[in-house]
């Protein structure tokens, strides 16, 4: 039993099944991220004046990731174009590049996550707040060592773009600590929505990479049986990947720059 239009486009609609299916799925993805972006806007608008953090994320790393993902989107398209031109060797090359670029993207994202995880805000009994990265090697049962600075008020931490004093080694006895919290999702709504948005986006990147790895490796056997069908698969997977890039194009300015 053969299902119609799995490879060739249906004449009146002009698309094959999987392409329409992918666009439908992407439409639902637009609404999924739309819900999250709405949540972002809602939370940001609802925050009392001057309480929304700025400049907490590394702009150089974000820029680099934007460029990496854009480059990977381009190599994906070239992989598909290579399939169209029936050049399997170039397909392997370009999709391989996509895989590498996507993996580097995830690596950088992971580094950024780790950086936030080790970043602590420590409320001291004398009212000061220590803010900095945990120096794990020197932290003991009695003292916590941070590489950072002291501030008198939490609000001083809100704008990371502003110039502030030098970072130094802060040795804090544990019995002086009222509350110690890292920059995890529970830190505040900004961190929460940051992790929610980039986490979900990261899962999409991971999913795309798994699909690409399949198409690059075992899935490419289809090429030798039905190159047209295989080309369609590459196109559809590419559409998904471009959408993932599209989401990041908005995530980067929204979270890193504004």
């Amino acid at each position: 039993m053969e299902i119609a239009y799995t490879v060739q486009p249906r004449p009146d609609t002009g698309v094959y099944n999987a392409k329409l299916g992918m666009w439908l799925f992407l439409a639902s993805e637009v609404m999924l991220f739309g819900g999250l972006f709405s949540a972002y806007v809602f939370l940001r608008m609802g925050a009392p004046p001057d309480t929304w953090p700025h400049g907490w994320l590394s702009v150089p790393l974000g820029t680099l990731n934007t460029l990496l993902l854009a480059a990977s989107a381009v190599t994906t398209l070239l992989a598909w174009a290579a399939c169209k031109a029936r050049r399997f060797d170039r397909f392997k090359l370009h999709l391989g590049l996509t895989l590498i670029l996507g993996t580097i993207f995830l690596g950088i994202k992971g580094y950024e996550y780790r950086d936030k995880w080790l970043h602590y805000e420590v409320q001291l009994k004398d009212g000061r707040i220590a803010d900095g990265h945990l120096v794990r090697a020197r932290t003991t049962a009695e003292t916590v060592v941070l590489h950072g600075r002291y501030v008198a008020d939490r609000r001083e931490l809100l704008d990371g773009r502003r110039k502030h004093g030098p970072h130094e080694e802060l040795v804090i006895p544990r019995d002086q600590i009222v509350r110690m919290q890292n920059y995890a999702p529970r830190h505040n709504t900004f961190m929460a929505i940051y992790f929610a948005l980039t986490g979900l986006h990261g899962l999409h990147v991971l999913g795309g990479l798994v699909v690409f790895a399949y198409l690059w490796g075992p899935g490419s056997r289809l090429w030798h049986v039905d190159p047209e069908h295989f080309t369609n698969r590459v196109e559809v997977a590419g559409l998904f990947w471009h959408f993932v890039d599209l989401v990041w194009i908005f995530l980067f300015p929204v979270l890193y720059l504004t």
């Binding site: 439409a27 639902s28 993805e29 637009v30 609404m31 999924l32 819900g35």
Partner: peptide, 9 residues
């Protein structure tokens, strides 16, 4: 298709 994703979010 279009109404469920915001609830998923």
């Amino acid at each position: 298709l279009l109404a469920f994703p915001p609830l998923e979010a």
